[in-house]
Write a protein that binds this DNA or RNA. Structure first.
Lengths: 202, 202
DNA sequence: CAGGAGTTTAACCAAATGGTTAAATAAGAG
DNA sequence: CTCTTATTTAACCATTTGGTTAAACTCCTG
């Protein structure tokens, strides 16, 4: 993520930009080279192949989309606050990287084995399990209404990520520019948190 | 959608399958020809180019994802029921076409102009406006708690569509096969409807 | 400053890909 | 049955694309 001026880093940054926008199939090595302001052969000198370069960008993106959220859920605070913290963190991250989720989800569908394999070897978010248990406990205590925790998790994640996946569509539907969209998403942090808390009232 | 045995129809069906799975950039004309069991030249005989073939598949998909939902919202029934009907209809449609939303959203991001242009010429879902007004009215009457209608719409749509966009990811996370996933989505109809209704309780 | 390792470039290559063409075949009208 | 039109095929073509190579350049060390 940091902007080091070494050629290797410039390549990764260029690759990230091109791959995120065009996907693996749509990205051209020449475009990555142009974006990095270097010769096409340099790409192969530093990273043997398109596939290799892609893997680096892809797993970095996975880390941002899945793994880091995990850390937020590990923090010590009441469940009620944790929901708001997770939502807020997620929307902030995606506001800074709007192309991230569609890129990741698309490439996962193109090649599900890649991700399935990693899920088997090392669970990508153990803290989600903890979070789910905390919610379940709150339901038992009557703090929250009892609902299916899995469906709840999917719903919260959906409300956070989907607007970014559908960004161009929403912008066309609501006729808002990038700045206005950013404001909508900022406002959305509170909306989603409140929405979930109200839905969980006993 | 119907399975006519004419060559033209076979081509469209093959194109739909390949384009939906691989996207415009990832799809190969040869693969479409193979899928249709015909010669590659036939594709160009009936549909001049890859782009032309793609446009047909794409707008058919848009129709399924956006336009048809509009019809459900036009039916005459109380708002409360309409929410459940829309959610149910959406999840059913997507269960039958799991690849549809990711395909559409991805291609829109690849070329937003395409869709923006159509939004300008003919609003894709006028009934959504009606629906939003009905919800606003219900809020005024105190039937629903007052929330931002736009954010509400985005939330409902998110909860319906996102699980299908993230299908392979969710299947890996929850370790469920296609059949089990289908059951989760069936169960989800009630969950989302209840969730929204509870969140809107005054 | 000599020379060697690491870096960069231009030219090139083989395979893949969208698209074309001309000939062959099927089919319908008279 | 024949001739014309629509359909289908195999062979071909130009361009694009990921990848390679050998030469050139830079920069550091002794």
């Amino acid at each position: 993520m940091q902007t080091l001026n070494t050629t290797e880093q410039q390549i990764i940054e260029a690759a990230r930009k091109i791959f995120m926008h065009r996907g693996l199939a749509g990205a051209r090595m020449q475009d990555i080279a142009d974006e990095a302001g270097i010769n096409k052969a340099m790409l192969h000198y530093y990273y043997r192949s398109k596939e290799k370069l892609f893997e680096i960008v892809f797993w970095e993106a996975i880390d941002q989309l899945l793994v880091r959220v995990n850390a937020v859920l590990a923090e010590k605070m009441p469940v009620q606050d944790k929901i708001g913290a997770a939502v807020s963190h997620y929307i902030t991250t995606l506001s800074d990287n709007p192309y991230l989720p569609l890129f990741v989800l698309n490439e996962i569908q193109q090649n599900p084995e890649r991700i399935v394999q990693r899920f088997l070897h090392a669970p990508l978010f153990p803290n989600v399990q903890v979070f789910i248990k905390e919610i379940a406990a709150a339901m038992e205590q009557g703090v929250f209404r009892k609902v299916n925790p899995g469906q709840l998790m999917i719903s919260i994640i959906s409300m956070c990520i989907f607007p970014f996946v559908a960004k161009p569509l929403l912008q066309a539907a609501f006729t808002v520019n990038d700045v206005q969209f950013g404001m909508m998403m900022e406002e959305r942090k509170k909306f989603v948190t409140d929405f979930v808390m109200h839905a969980l009232r006993p």
